[in-house]
């Protein structure tokens, strides 16, 4: 295998080194293997590529037979999305489509037909790849990630390495009925943008935008309080992008371009969400 410029890797057709395979059937058993250093294999659409790119693994915990990791439910005002839910299942789930249609719609647009039916949202998040869109979507929504060891982590703070030895079980979204969500990916891979607004009891709207690129983990930008998003869209977008770090840029998308494109996209999203 040969590493080349820009973090790209020349594809290798050579056989992969063998590893010890565990096939747990319960969350507890799977969690023990992951805590001991095994790499969790969920949908199985990404790990081979990661190994070809240089990831060294000695043990794999295949989650395909673990019960209770998939599914969407709404209880006590909190939406729970199982980490083992595939993209196809999540996007089509009736509970999600009723509770948070903007997320269901966004979820239905990520990945390809070859990934959508087997790739899971847990794998998307835990793969640690900036270009995978789960962290942008759930980070912008203010979702909480819950792990098998009982710990939780805001999705926006997820970092691949730090969480690698914990088994993600659920994604939790509080008060989905008060959330408005929209995802813009027409400029992908140069830029993607998510917008989440929360309706407060007095009618005000608070929220934030998330912006990411093919190579950059998302940045989350707070929005000023809004009363009329359509009328205030331009000013709100300007205020949000004033907070974008100056070093948020990659070789394909410079900071000035991201500010301009991000501002325009966010303003458009605010107008659309208001409509």
């Amino acid at each position: 295998m040969m590493r080349v410029a820009g973090g790209l890797v020349a594809a290798s057709q050579y056989a992969l080194p063998p590893f010890v395979l565990h096939r747990p059937t319960t969350v507890e058993e799977a969690s023990r293997h992951v805590a001991a250093g095994a790499v969790a294999l969920a949908g199985g659409t990404d790990l081979v590529a990661q190994i070809r790119e240089g990831l060294a693994i000695r043990e794999v915990a295949d989650l395909s037979q673990v019960r209770g990791l998939a599914g969407v439910s709404l209880a006590g005002g909190t939406l729970r999305i199982g980490a083992g839910t595939t993209h196809a299942e999540g996007a089509a789930d009736p509970a999600l489509r009723a509770a948070l249609p903007g997320l269901a719609e966004a979820w239905g647009r990520i990945a390809t037909a070859r990934v959508r039916f087997t790739g899971t949202i847990g794998g998307n998040l835990m793969a640690g790849r900036p270009r995978y869109e789960g962290r942008l979507l759930f980070g912008t929504l203010g979702a909480l990630l819950r792990f098998a060891d009982g710990t939780t982590l805001p999705a926006e703070r997820l970092a691949g390495e730090a969480s690698r030895h914990r088994l993600l079980t659920d994604i939790l979204i509080a008060g989905p009925e008060r959330l408005l969500f929209r995802y813009e990916r027409a400029l992908r891979p140069m830029m993607t943008l998510a917008l989440c607004l929360r309706r407060e009891a007095d009618g005000r709207l608070s929220g934030r935008a998330g912006i990411a690129t093919e190579r950059l983990a998302p940045a989350f930008l707070p929005l000023p309080e809004l009363r009329a998003p359509a009328a205030e869209a331009e000013a709100a977008a300007a205020a949000a992008f004033a907070a974008l770090p100056r070093d948020f840029a990659d070789p394909m998308s410079g900071n000035a371009w991201l500010r301009a494109a991000g501002h325009a996209t966010l303003a458009r999203a605010l107008k659309a969400i208001a409509a």
Binding site: T45, D46, V48, S64, R114, V115, T118
Partner: peptide, 11 residues
């Protein structure tokens, strides 16, 4: 449909 190049055979 799956990508056989990136799918472990045991799956």
């Amino acid at each position: 449909p799956v990508a056989a190049c990136a799918t472990f055979a045991f799956r």
